[in-house]
Every structure is written in C-alpha cells, then in structure tokens.
Write a protein that binds this DNA or RNA. Structure first.
Lengths: 242, 242
DNA sequence: CATTACTGCGAACACTGTACCCGAGTAGAG
DNA sequence: CTCTACTCGGGTACAGTGTTCGCAGTAATG
C-alpha cells in the first residue's frame, strides 16, 4: 500500500486512474465486525476476512495499509451505532445519560471493543461526531470549553471502565471455550480457599452475598448508580458560568 | 502442562518428585513485565521471554500452561505495586482517593495493563487484596455490602477508563515507531479538514484551545476533577446506614 | 538399585501479518 | 484509435507466532 505517511481517515478510497475496485472499505470492515462478533476478536485474521469475502488475502492490502487500520475502521464503524444526532433537549443531564446508555449498549453488542479501544485514540469521523454531540448537550450552559470536555471525558471514562469490568468474566469464559458452569467449577476451589483463609472478610461477604442474589441486572444497577453519582457530582459542582 | 482443568492461581509451583525447577513463575513473570515495559506488549513473545532468561522456549511450558496464564500473572504482579495495606484512616474519602491515585500511577508505569485487563477478570491474589483494602476503607461506615462493592467498582471503573483515554494517544504514537512530531504531522491534515469543515464547532474549539495550552498536567487535572465529582456524588448520596 | 516422575529443550506444526511480483484491465494523452 | 502509465487481484514466500512431541538426563521413592 502507498500513502503510509498519511492516516486511514484521510486516504482516498478509490484511485484516480486504474480499474474500479471490487470491494469497499466499508464492506471489509463489516465482514471483520461480523467475524469478531461471532467468533471473538482472536479469530479475526486477514485470511479469515478474505475467506469471508471470497477474495485473496493479499487483495485486502489494496484497501488497507495494515491490520491495524482495519481495527481502527472497526472501532469507528461501531461508534456510529451509538446513534445519530439526538438533538440536545435542553436537559443536559438527561442527554448525557442517554449517550452513556447508548454507548454501553454498543459495547455489549461488540464485546471486543474494549480491548481494541485500549491504546487506540478515537479519531475516526463517527467517534468525533459522538464527542461533538456530547459537547452539544453541555453547550447551552455556556461553560468554558475546558470544563465541557472534562465532563465528557470523565463520563466516557466511566462508561468504558465499567463495561470492561462487566465484560471481563464473560469474555474470559468465552475464550476458555467451556461453558460458564465448567468455568466456575474450575475457579471454585481457588475462591473457596481464599474465602476460607479468612484474610479477606469483606470479599468473603461479597462472594457469599452474591452467591445467587447476584441478579442478572446487578451490573446494570451498578452502572446506573455510578453514572448518577458522577452526574450528581458534576451537577453540584459546575463552576459558575462566565 | 498438566492440570489444565484448574486455574493458574491454584496450581502448585513445584512438583513433588522430580528435580528442582531452575526458575520460578515470579522470575518469568518479572522478565515478561520488563520486556513489556521496555518494548511494548506486542514485543512480548514466549521466545523473547525465553531469550531474556537464557532458557529454551519450550521450557517455559513447564511453568505455565499457556501465554494467557503468563498475562494473568503479569497483571496480578503489577497489581501488587498498588501498595501494601494502607490501614484505613477513618477518612474513607481520602483512603479511596489514595487508592485511585496509586492505581493510576501503576497503570502509567505499565501502559500495557489496560489492553490486557480488558477481557480478563482480576482474580489474582494481589488484585483480591487490593479490592479488600478498598472495601475496608468503607467498612467503618457500616453500609450494606452491596453498596460498598458498588462504590469500589465504580471507582475502579473510572480509574481504568480514564487511564485508557490518557494512554491511547501515547500508545498509538509508540506503536507507530515514529516520534510524536511525525505522528502529529501525519494526523494534522485530517484534523484540519475536520475543523475547517465546520460541522464540529465544539470540537474545533477544543482542538484550537488545546493547541499549546494543552498543559502537561491537563490529564492529571481532568482525572482529579472527575474523581472528586464521583466521590462527591457518593458522599452526598450514601444511603442511610442500617 | 530399579522405578517413577519430573525437568530442560531441539525440532516441528499450524498458524499469523504482510512484501513481492505477476498478468490483466482501465483511464487519459497524443 | 494507439500507447502508456497506472491500478487491481491474488499466488507465493518469508519471518515470526503459540504450542506439542519426544527424548535425554536427574532427583526422590520403594
């Protein structure tokens, strides 16, 4: 691939001269996302994508400079799922909450997102759109741009971080290839040892109290609580408008 | 490796019968961490670790069932850096703040942590210790264990999520192999185009206002602000004690 | 001492990302 | 229309990956 000096977002899709390409970047990206969704991110290889599309592997490099570029495109493509422009309603808190829930839903639909997003700045057009929308919710308040971006960043941080925790076990189980029952059985002896050793009394309470009560919506409730606390904190402490 | 049915934390390090092993798991883990710190997580291969230790590659599999186990051990080893038991001072808010800052410092020392931690539950002994300590800071308040673990989880989520955002660009630059200046030069045309297109007026303000003012401590200030808002939110809304 | 169970490890296997090179095909120049 | 300069698709090849197998050597057990 040429143009290695520039960046995937700024590279023309089609050359000026030669024959028309038979695929598009979007097509390739969609195929890659489908594979990652269905078989996990570790099953995503260039050969696998090529097979899915019925092309030769080397052909993909006519569209992408590297696999890294493909991963960037995947992340930006799913960022578009967070939704189109939900016009600011005037209720900044409600708007930000909506964005947070949408973002969480998208991550749950594509659990491989979190591991990719670590170490990859979100500079794709759809990611930038999402940030713009979040900022727009705060715009009517008339605060300094530094405050606005900080609010958006911390909110984003919480959503991403919480989702990582939520998905960690689920992803570990999936990668192990066995069912959840076998996975828990494999871990039970170790956790039992920790609990009965007595040096983690509070953790022991968590594990015991969460034996079955660990309701299916406990993660969602925790997310909701933390989100509202963070919004509370900002609402109570927004600096005086200039 | 045998004992594939059990879990790395619960597997005896030394066999009962044969000759004494010449390395330890901790030694291997330390070598792996050193490599990841110095050359990045993508440079970490089993062959590279073996070379570092002066052993044969296959020998590592006498100590570890898989590379995945090694990654788990690495994460738990750095979790120990978060520090020993900082006895609860009675000031729960200060204690949690201390833990958050320590955790952030550890992540900055080992930027590969975030990408590993995504998709990997923190069940190692040192990670469990850290959680126990965080819970201990809240224990004197006498709240329900569910509330306590939610506070700790949301705090953890914020710290992890914020660090991911902080490190994303830095890691992308490092992976690209070029200096920060070349990296920014490569991205500038694209960002200029976005800004001058005019469809992201708020982002444009962020980019322009952060041209140079983007002080070295701006990330730290954002972290501090977000953390205090989250703690504010909890402080103002802790449920009535039973 | 013989047996057993382990250790270290060279070699090999099935994969990975991707560079190179080719024939085939298309757009613009003259 | 012809010619030239380019692009597209993709087979092949290379260096590197995680991991398994089998074998020689060693320590503890009976």
């Amino acid at each position: 691939m040429d143009d290695a000096h520039t960046v995937v977002w700024n590279r023309p899709e089609r050359a000026a001269k030669g024959p028309a390409p038979s695929r598009t970047r979007a097509e390739i990206t969609a195929a890659a996302i489908a594979i990652a969704d269905a078989e996990g991110i570790e099953a995503l290889s260039m050969r696998r994508v090529a097979k899915e599309l019925g092309t030769g592997t080397a052909s993909l490099y006519r569209y992408l400079a590297s696999k890294d570029d493909l991963l960037d495109l995947m992340l930006d493509a799913v960022a578009a799922e967070d939704g189109g422009p939900p016009a600011p309603t005037g209720d900044w808190r409600g708007d930000l909450r909506t964005l947070a829930y949408r973002s969480r839903a998208t991550i749950h639909r594509h659990p491989w997102m979190t591991s990719l997003a670590a170490g990859r700045p979100s500079l794709g057009p759809n990611s930038l759109d999402a940030t713009e929308h979040a900022l727009a919710a705060l715009d009517p308040l008339g605060f300094d741009i530094d405050v606005m971006i900080t609010v958006v960043d911390t909110l984003h941080a919480f959503v991403r971080g919480y989702a990582i925790g939520e998905l960690a076990q689920q992803e570990a189980v999936r990668r192990s290839g066995v069912g959840i029952q076998e996975w828990m059985d494999a871990h039970a002896p170790y956790l039992d040892k920790v609990v009965s050793a007595g040096r983690h009394p509070l953790l022991a309470r968590v594990i015991r109290d969460a034996e079955l009560p660990h309701a299916a919506d406990s993660a969602e409730r925790g997310f909701q609580l933390g989100l509202e606390r963070l919004l509370d904190g900002w609402e109570a402490n927004l600096p005086i408008r200039p």
